[in-house]
Simulated scan of single mutants.
Amino acid sequence: AQAHPPPVRLVLNLCDIERPRPIHRRGQGTFVATIVEGVDDQRDVMKAAYPLIVRSLANMVIYLTRVDGVLESHFITIEQGHYTVRLTDSEEAFFDQIYGRIQPLACSHLVINNDFVPDLPDNLWQGDETTRQIGWAGKKLDAMGLLPAAIPIHEYLSERELRHVKRLYGIGGLSYGNLSARALHNPAHFWMSASGVDKSKLETVGRDILLVTDYIPEKLMIRLSVPANVEPRRVSVDAIEHYMIYREHPSVGAIVHIHAWWRDPIPSTEVNYPCGTYELAREVAELVRQEPDPSRAVVGLKNHGLTITGHSLPEIFERIEGKIVPQVPMS
């Protein structure tokens, strides 16, 4: 039998900005960076470039523009990360920086597939005190202005492309932030918000909030216990990160992830790995481990946001009051 060639890990997709070409790759392991040349002196790069991520089915857009005559490469990620490399030295140094930005991301491993097991006990189909706390916490994030509007990807994609995005990235839409809390009935499990849902309206078990029961490393898959009477949504892509933290630290009772920053200096990851990758989860878990009290940690995710651990969701919100900065620093 003829051996299958190894999957392509990186595609550089050079496109016309007006007609971006979507890349329909075969698997989640292929990282696509779409490269476009924009107008000179483009000031609102995020607005010009972000739709190209979904229109070209990419993991990242590299948007080229000249500002005051200097070439700039703007890197835009699906998590709304935005950072810049400028050609101020030699071309060799410029391209070394570009390589350094792409290589770690392209070589990372997504853990976004879900194994839905319809075995959730009947008495949990309507939720419990923990799921109600998650719903309350979602409303708190909304009241604090920490839930950016979900990106309407259906406006940019055909039905076929939308199905492709869901299959590749394991998402039902693009929304930001997530919440989780350790399960009362089984401390080895935890409840977590779903992917692509309105975090201010977390109500239905299996659709808005899911029970994470295990991680299957050989399949890079998260196992979920769901009601038999609901068509489940995928859990947040950050489930692998939360899984690592809960497994190692029994005193952690809840975790909040937001796209904002901390008022005071905090430890932060060094590479802006994509959400849902094993590498990002491992780096965040290591920073939590290094904290004096891992059960009350505040860790920065480079160009992305915060992961905050606590004993409970109300305890976390009490601690963060007045300490959140809406703008995430980009570098």
Rank of each mutant, 00 (worst) to 15 (best):
L174P: 05
R233P: 04
G196Q: 07
V205N: 02
P232T: 04
H164C: 15
I209G: 05
A181P: 04
M192W: 00
C275E: 00
I240Q: 10
Y169G: 13
Y156D: 12
E155D: 15
S193L: 07
R247D: 10
I222L: 00
V237Q: 04
L157G: 03
S195C: 11
N178C: 10
H249A: 05
A188V: 01
A183G: 06
R247S: 15
L210V: 05
R263W: 13
W262E: 13
W262R: 03
P265V: 14
K199T: 02
I245R: 13
D264N: 12
V230Q: 10
R207P: 05
Y273G: 13
Y156H: 13
Y243R: 13
R234F: 01
I209Q: 04
M244F: 10
N186K: 14
A194T: 01
N186Q: 10
I255A: 05
W191A: 05
D214R: 05
R182Q: 12
T204Q: 15
C275N: 14
H164L: 14
G173Q: 12
G276H: 06
P274R: 15
G177K: 00
I240G: 08
A239F: 01
R182N: 09
L202F: 08
R233S: 14
L168N: 13
E203H: 09
F190A: 10
L224D: 08
N229P: 06
M244S: 14
R167A: 15
G276T: 08
L157D: 06
I171E: 03
L162E: 12
P227V: 06
H259W: 09
A228W: 10
A181W: 07
D198E: 04
Y156L: 11
L168H: 07
Y273V: 10
M192Q: 06
V256T: 07
L179T: 03
G173K: 05
Y215R: 02
P232I: 02
S251C: 14
L211S: 04
G276P: 05
S175W: 02
I209K: 01
G170N: 07
V230Y: 11
F190C: 04
Y169A: 13
G206M: 04
A183Y: 10
Y215M: 04
K199P: 00
Y169I: 08
P274C: 10
V235Y: 03
T213C: 01
W262M: 08
V205W: 03
I171S: 14
G196Y: 00
R207K: 14
V197T: 03
V212D: 03
R234C: 09
S175T: 00
E218T: 09
K166S: 15
